[in-house]
Design a protein around this nucleic acid. Structure first.
Lengths: 125, 125
DNA sequence: TCCATAGTTCGACAAATATCGAACCGTTGT
DNA sequence: ACAACGGTTCGATATTTGTCGAACTATGGA
């Protein structure tokens, strides 16, 4: 009876292992499937935009990304990454215990020419 | 006592005339006060982006803007315009009984070089 | 003078997003 | 082995944003 307690809230073994993968491959959308409005929305949040700026000079391990915001709860940060990832803006791949995050720059440039450049080039936030 | 009924819901004369101007000047933000994220957010909605595209070839009277969406309630449309206006993307000025809507292209280009071009140039939505 | 028109604001409600602790897992160092 | 670490997912809650009818107004024309 307490076997239910062994697994997370109201979830069987199958669903459990299907929905709780840590440090595993995360789904990335095909760039052909992302809409311009998705990208614009992902970039429209200051915290997310800051992450993108941090990544503009190269890939980073996730820990160094929001270095500007050291008190940011990790679940929140993870969520920001998720929005960016699902919008096709960043790639997030497991690297041992950590995760390497990078901009999907080439793909974005090919699909939305000049967009990332103008956003990153803007002096004001 | 029924003088209260003469004016809209629970509002005195002063507030009434302060908050209910139709076909009057609407406030436009100084371009120096708009953040990049505000612009990106305004453009991140398909309906709003469509309006911006409609305006890319020149000012339009409001009625011709969302011509793609003829069933759109006017209050909704007005709201879309408000978001774009408050983000500094469009100008909305009274023109007799109607309103002339236009892109604040020069100002935006000067402040966020290349942004509008890349967004309008994108083939995909 | 009166009416139809274009468009804003309000107000209430619906839907999408954000926030963050708790639970959890694989990796790595000890 | 095992505990600390980095990071995701869940679930609940708070906040923002979207939707749209109703009320309202100035304008322009009949």
């Amino acid at each position: 009876m307490d076997s239910a307690k062994a697994f997370p809230i109201s979830r069987n073994w199958f669903e459990y292992y299907r929905t709780m993968p840590a440090n595993q491959e995360l789904p990335h959308p095909d760039i052909a499937d992302v809409a311009l409005t998705d990208v614009l929305f992902a970039l429209s949040d200051p915290a997310r935009l800051q992450i993108v700026r941090d990544l503009s000079s190269g890939p980073l391990e996730m820990a160094q990304c929001g270095a500007t915001n050291p008190t940011l709860p990790k679940s929140t940060k993870s969520h920001l990454m998720k929005v960016l990832r699902e919008a096709g803006v960043i790639r997030n791949e497991p690297r041992g215990r950590e995760r390497l995050v990078s901009l999907r720059r080439e793909e974005l440039d090919a699909t939305f020419p000049g967009l990332l450049d103008s956003v990153l080039g803007a002096s004001r936030g």
